Simulated assay, not measured.
Amino acid sequence: MPPKAEITKEKLLDTAFKIVREEGLEALTARSIAQRLKCSTQPIYSVYGNMEEVKDDVFNRAVDYALASMKQYHNDKNAPAMNLAIGCLLFARNEKHLFRTLYLSDYRRHYLKRNKDKLKEEMYAAFLLLDKRLSTMAESKAEKMFRKLTTYWLGIGMIINTNTSELDIDEATEMLEEMYQTLTVKEGLA
């Protein structure tokens, strides 16, 4: 009899990530992983103590994947933060289940109670590079402006993700730029 293929942590994580990417976080169970790997659930619990550990690792991988994906968009005419925002919109359109996992799932709140928000930190760092005038603002004002812009782009991302409106990336980009200009005027930066 040939030796059984070893179920490694990496193989489990790859499989779990594929399930979430294709079907969403709610489809991720020990049984769904076992079915894809053609094994029982026992190896999963041998490698991971419980499904929460699997979900944490999948969520971490989804964050890394999202950031890499968002950073791929580049247009020389845009500031780095605008490129990142457009990259976020493209991610919302192209990776429907991962976007929902990262931004719309109940698990996100549970995860963030125990982990830092790496997505938010990266976005905020890029936001501060958007405009040299932002460095002259009080930190609390800059954070408030960032929160407003994030709420706006996330709302647009949800519309794109769920196809609730005929909104293309160019129109969405224009909307983001207009919102940024409105906020800079309101904050006295214009």
Rank of each mutant, 00 (worst) to 15 (best):
Leu37Phe: 07
Asn60Ile: 02
Lys113Ile: 04
Thr29Glu: 05
Leu134Asn: 03
Arg100Leu: 10
Glu171Tyr: 09
Ala34Pro: 06
Val63Glu: 11
Lys55Gln: 10
His74Asp: 10
Thr101Lys: 02
Thr151Tyr: 14
Lys186Gln: 07
Ala16Pro: 04
Lys9Pro: 01
Lys11Gly: 00
His110Gly: 07
Arg108Phe: 10
Lys18Leu: 05
Asp106Leu: 10
Ser105His: 11
Glu143Lys: 15
Thr8Leu: 00
Arg100Met: 12
Cys39Ala: 15
Leu98Trp: 03
Thr173Phe: 08
Glu6Phe: 05
Leu90Gln: 10
Asn50Leu: 05
Ala68Val: 01
Ser135Gln: 10
Glu171Asp: 13
Leu104Asn: 15
Pro43Gly: 04
Glu121Ser: 12
Glu52His: 13
Asp170Phe: 08
Leu84Tyr: 15
Pro2Thr: 14
Leu37Arg: 07
Arg114Thr: 02
Asp168Ser: 08
Leu183Ala: 01
Ala126Gly: 00
Arg93Glu: 14
Ala92Gln: 08
Leu28Gly: 01
Asn50Thr: 04
Arg93Phe: 08
Ala85Gly: 11
Glu171Leu: 14
Asn161Met: 03
Glu143Tyr: 09
Thr41Gln: 12
Leu189Val: 03
Ala27Leu: 02
Leu189Asp: 02
Asp76Ile: 11
Ile156Arg: 10
Lys113Gln: 13
Tyr73Arg: 02
Ala138Gln: 15
Ala68Pro: 00
Val20Gly: 03
Gly49Phe: 00
Lys11Val: 00
Gln181Pro: 00
Glu121Asp: 14
Pro3Trp: 07
Asn161Ser: 10
Ala66Cys: 14
Thr184Ala: 03
Asn75Cys: 13
Leu112Phe: 08
Val54Phe: 00
Glu166Gly: 03
Glu178Val: 06
Pro43Asp: 05
Met82Gly: 05
Tyr180Ser: 03
Lys71Ser: 14
Val20Ala: 04
Val63Asp: 03
Arg147Ile: 10
Asp56Lys: 11
Ala66Asn: 10
Val47Thr: 06
Leu183Ile: 03
Met137Glu: 12
Lys4Cys: 09
Trp153Asp: 04
Ile19Ser: 05
Ala79Gly: 07
Lys118Ser: 07
Thr29Gln: 02
Ala138Thr: 09
Asn94Glu: 15
Ile159Gln: 12
Ser140Ala: 12
Leu25Cys: 05
Ile86Met: 11
Glu171Phe: 11
Glu177Ala: 14
Phe59Thr: 05
Gln35Glu: 15
Thr150Ala: 13
Leu128Trp: 06
Ser105Gly: 11
Ala125Thr: 06
Glu174Val: 08
Cys39Asp: 09
Thr29Ile: 04
Glu95Met: 04
Met82Tyr: 05
Tyr107Trp: 13
Lys9Arg: 15
Thr8Met: 00
Arg93Leu: 11
Leu28Tyr: 01
Thr182Val: 06
Arg133Trp: 04
Gly49Ile: 02
Lys11Arg: 12
Phe17Thr: 01
Trp153His: 10
Cys88Tyr: 15
Lys186Glu: 09
Phe91Asn: 06
Tyr111Ser: 06
Glu171Val: 12
Cys39Ser: 15
Thr8Glu: 01
Ser140Lys: 14
Met137Thr: 06
Leu189Pro: 00
Tyr152Val: 08
Arg21Asp: 08
Val20Ile: 02
Asp168Leu: 06
Pro2Asn: 14
Gly49Asp: 05
Phe59Lys: 01
Arg114Trp: 02
Thr8Gly: 02
Thr136Lys: 13
Asn163Val: 05
Ala81Glu: 10
Glu177Asp: 12
Arg36Ser: 01
Ala85His: 08
Lys71Phe: 08
Glu177Val: 13
Thr150Pro: 03
Ser140Gln: 11
Lys132Val: 04
Thr162His: 12
Ala126Ile: 00
Lys116Ser: 13
